[in-house]
Write a protein that binds this DNA or RNA. Structure first.
Length: 463
DNA sequence: TACTTCGGCGCC
DNA sequence: AAAGGGCGCCGAAGTA
């Protein structure tokens, strides 16, 4: 059970919902010709890949195992073929005891068939969830995703039919395929504004950890680079973009979400091994770690104590330092927040919402941060929509992705829109909520007329 | 045919 | 002491 307790909290949701209705009504323009072509091409690519596997031994075993009911899309059947018929060792199982057949488990087998199977899976996901998913919801060249405020336990928003909040972006070749379908209206540009590091910033408003606050305040500091250096035991000036990515997405964020050293060690290790990553000076990171006395990952078994000279042991120490020293105040806040929740059965967020119910430790600690961060976005969204109406702007907000706002803006209004949005999202919001104790920053990206969402490039905001 | 569960995977 | 926060959508497989 959760409620908007204060009048401001109620107003935030009430107005937010009206804004989201406007966004749904606006819709985003879709290049339907492109979509049709991309669907055809992707279908042919998938068919060709399957054809190239017809002679493979795995295909033959698959046929003798399943006969008429063979389904070469089925991961469950693949698991049966590989692990029970062909004798490959299954190291990963799901909670129900079935062999795990996710990308990570399968790619570690290094079987040519499997490599191609995974490629087909990626294309199939792109085709069914995205290309077809977008096409079947497009009406007269526009897509109108639904945006809700009542479905997420943390008070974040959600999106469906289709989900506008999980359009591929991480893998370039998939992003290329999907995002080209999203285009600006005639005479418009797509403008995307996102709060940089809003959840980390809002977390500081709860725990006031001085070291984390310093990272947020001082742009010359770089937490992700620093933690990559510590995890991979190198100087900060040896950290490449990819290694920084590992520090950020395989250590810092998982740690903030409540993960622990065993998973982090595994993922950090896999990151450098499967990517064959090097330091800036060209040395392979695995070779470098060897020089530092670390030759292997370690058992990564929760029941075993990590052994000396393993990467697992090292990351355990990094973790201990992370919470015991570096972000000690944050760690103390987590304990306090958790025990207060256990005592009271709920909490109140900085944005004026009361949340009651049964929560696990990690959920209780993350929910207020995630929800309050989204409320920053939601407030900005309504203010921006009001600015658009008041100024008779031709800008149309077309979507929201948790910490970002996507709008379709007349080309000659772009600078006005950017200036107004920056004022609202940073200065006005900080004035509205006095508890915001860190600087608010936004980044802007733009895709011009004739381009697509896939072409968005960073753009400076003039004050 | 309709529905549920599971595993998997896309995003923040 | 426990051990990854939040979603929506897909196909496969089983059940009603």
């Amino acid at each position: 059970m959760s409620r908007a307790t204060t009048p401001e909290a109620y107003k935030l949701l009430h107005e937010g919902l009206q804004t989201l209705s406007r966004i749904e009504s606006n819709g985003i323009r879709i290049d339907t010709d492109y979509l049709e072509g991309a669907i055809g091409k992707t279908k042919r690519r998938i068919a060709n890949l399957y054809r190239s596997l017809e002679e493979d031994e795995v295909t033959q075993v698959w046929k003798t195992t399943f006969g008429r009911s063979a389904n070469f899309n089925s991961r469950e059947q693949l698991g049966e073929v590989l692990f029970n018929r062909m004798g490959h060792a299954c190291v990963n199982r799901t909670p129900t005891g079935r062999p795990r057949t996710d990308e990570e488990s399968l790619s570690s087998l290094s079987i040519p068939y499997v490599k191609r199977f995974l490629k087909i899976s990626k294309l199939q996901k792109a085709l069914s969830t995205y290309l077809y998913g977008i096409q079947k919801e497009t009406v007269d060249g526009f897509l109108h995703p639904i945006f809700s405020l009542h479905l997420v336990s943390t008070f974040r928003g959600s999106s469906e039919r289709p989900n506008f909040q999980n359009i591929p972006i991480r893998l370039e070749w998939i992003a290329d395929l999907i995002r080209q379908a999203f285009i600006p209206r005639v005479g418009h540009a797509l403008v995307e504004l996102d709060y940089s590091g809003i959840e980390v910033g809002i977390s500081c408003c709860y725990h006031h950890d001085p070291r984390l606050t310093a990272y947020v305040e001082d742009l010359s500091l770089d937490m992700h680079r620093d933690m990559a250096a510590e995890c991979y035991m190198m100087d900060t000036d040896q950290v490449t973009k990819q290694l920084r990515y590992g520090g950020k997405n395989k250590f810092i964020f998982p740690q903030f979400y409540g993960d622990y050293y065993i998973n982090c060690a595994r993922n950090l290790w896999d990151h450098i091994v499967s990517g064959k990553l090097s330091m800036k000076n060209g040395t392979l990171v695995t070779d470098h770690l060897k020089e530092q006395g670390i030759t292997r990952l370690g058992a990564c078994d929760p029941k075993q104590k990590p052994k000396a000279r393993t990467f697992e042991k090292h990351i355990q120490e990094v973790e201990a330092n992370f919470w015991g020293s570096r972000f000690k105040v944050y760690a103390e806040w987590k304990e306090k927040w958790w025990s207060e929740y256990q005592k009271n059965g709920g909490w109140q967020t900085l944005t004026g919402f009361i949340e009651n119910g049964v929560f696990k430790r990690n959920e209780a600690i993350n929910a207020p941060i995630q929800g309050s961060a989204f409320h920053c976005l939601l407030w900005s969204l309504t203010r921006l929509q009001k600015w658009i109406e008041r100024n008779r702007s031709g800008a149309k907000i077309v979507g929201q992705i948790h910490d970002s706002i996507v709008a379709d803006v007349p080309v000659d209004e772009v600078q006005d829109y950017l200036a107004a949005a920056k004022k609202i999202m940073t200065r006005d919001l900080a004035r509205k909520w006095k508890w915001i104790s860190v600087p608010l920053r936004i980044d802007a990206e733009i895709a011009y007329e004739g381009q697509s969402w896939n072409d968005k490039k960073e753009i400076k905001i003039e004050n």
